[in-house]
Design a protein around this nucleic acid. Structure first.
Lengths: 224, 224
DNA sequence: AATCCCCGAAATTTTGAAATTTCATTGCAA
DNA sequence: TTGCAATGAAATTTCAAAATTTCGGGGATT
């Protein structure tokens, strides 16, 4: 028995993000432990960490459960994600140099290569992990010059929770062709050092995951 | 042996925030376990969760360590905290009603009561926990109408890490009289629904924890 | 003197089982 | 029939010990 906790932790994270388990499904340490051929306690520790990241729900004496599908939750995660990304690009535009631009271009190149391949072959599942990693890298590269690691770390966990909600069998995988264009728009705006355009491009990229706004004109905004 | 993990988790969190352990100190599960009279494994689980919150450092096979004091880290935490708070107030101003205003006023009232008492008696340690809770409540109330629980949760953990860095024996406890005025300024700006003034008041409240800026005029911003 | 290697002590990680709590089912009474 | 209590099975939490890894101190070789 060697040290395999880090591996298993990452594998579990991937599973939760890539819909290996159903949303809302109960997850028993003993069952998962059997899959990985380790003891239940080892898995329990891993699951406690994953609940701290927001990928699992945990209640005392009641065990673990994959976070459930929820339009409201997806809306909140998306809003927060937009905030972090807009903040990240804005700071990067202010600080970043040629190095930053090069990293964005590189990340976008890899991403669009994978996206083109998906459009061609129609196979999403086979390269889903690669696409996930590439999209995360691209969005991280946007805030790569923000000089605020804590922002990137925060983004990572929010991004994971976002994917968890999006990549469920119920929802479409969201590999629409729009994505390719939207990513390009984001890249161009960032390279142009145009803060407003960047904000807008990010918003447009994510807005379809927001819930319809409650009518702003209604009186009861100030409910007591 | 009853269920006491939630208690111990909260106590440990308080200890880490209130300088019960030194920053950077090594923390052995077995030793802490002896203090609380539970087994080492129980504490280990708690510590794993606390490292996910960023209050402990954890390295495989090397155990746990209280996060060390670092000007750079405090700077980053502060910058991120400012981002979250400014975002929170801005959204609250847009959405909040009379209920929100009342909650801010209430939280500020409690906080200034404690701060006045501290100024009078000079005793900080005795009411440090109360002050912490009150200040957190106040800052949370600023974003109370933002309608984004995920933002509040994120702020809670960042605030905890901020306190951990600030409330160390080395640094002054930072219970300067300036605090009282600054809190008042923040409250007034929020009640005035003045976004710019709110942003400014929050920045002024926290800026002394930022590191001096590198000279913006220097050439090597674009270091390769 | 400096470096490397080996060994023992101490700490970390994993395990399997005991203790406790929750959950569902059945039986009893209103 | 409905509601409640009791019971037993299953799951969770805690524990203590075994297995593994790290850390540090000689001792031999260069």
């Amino acid at each position: 028995m060697k040290q395999q906790t880090p591996d298993i932790l990452q594998q579990m994270r991937d599973r939760l993000i890539m819909a290996h388990y159903r949303l809302g499904q109960k997850l028993r340490p003993s069952e998962v432990a059997a899959e990985f051929e380790v003891s239940a306690n080892t898995i329990r520790e891993i699951m406690l960490r994953l609940s701290a990241e927001g990928l699992l729900d945990y209640e005392d004496q009641r065990g673990f459960r994959v976070v459930g599908a929820s339009d409201r939750l997806l809306h909140e995660i998306t809003e927060f994600r937009i905030v972090l990304e807009q903040c990240g690009v804005e700071r990067s535009i202010a600080r970043g140099g040629i190095e930053w631009e090069a990293q964005m271009a590189a990340a976008h190149h890899k991403l669009s290569h994978i996206e083109a391949r998906i459009r061609r072959t129609g196979d999403v599942v086979g390269v889903l992990k690669h696409w996930n990693d590439a999209e995360l890298d691209f969005h991280l590269s946007l805030m790569g010059a923000a000089d605020l690691p804590i922002l990137q770390q925060s983004f990572r966990t929010v991004y994971a929770r976002f994917r968890q909600q999006i990549v469920s069998p119920e929802r479409s995988y969201a590999h629409r062709e729009g994505n390719i264009i939207e990513h390009q728009r984001i890249l161009e705006a960032a390279l142009d050092r145009d803060v407003a355009a960047s904000h807008d491009a990010i918003y447009r990229h994510l807005r379809r995951n927001l819930m319809p706004e409650p009518d702003a004109r209604s009186e009861d905004t100030m409910t007591a």
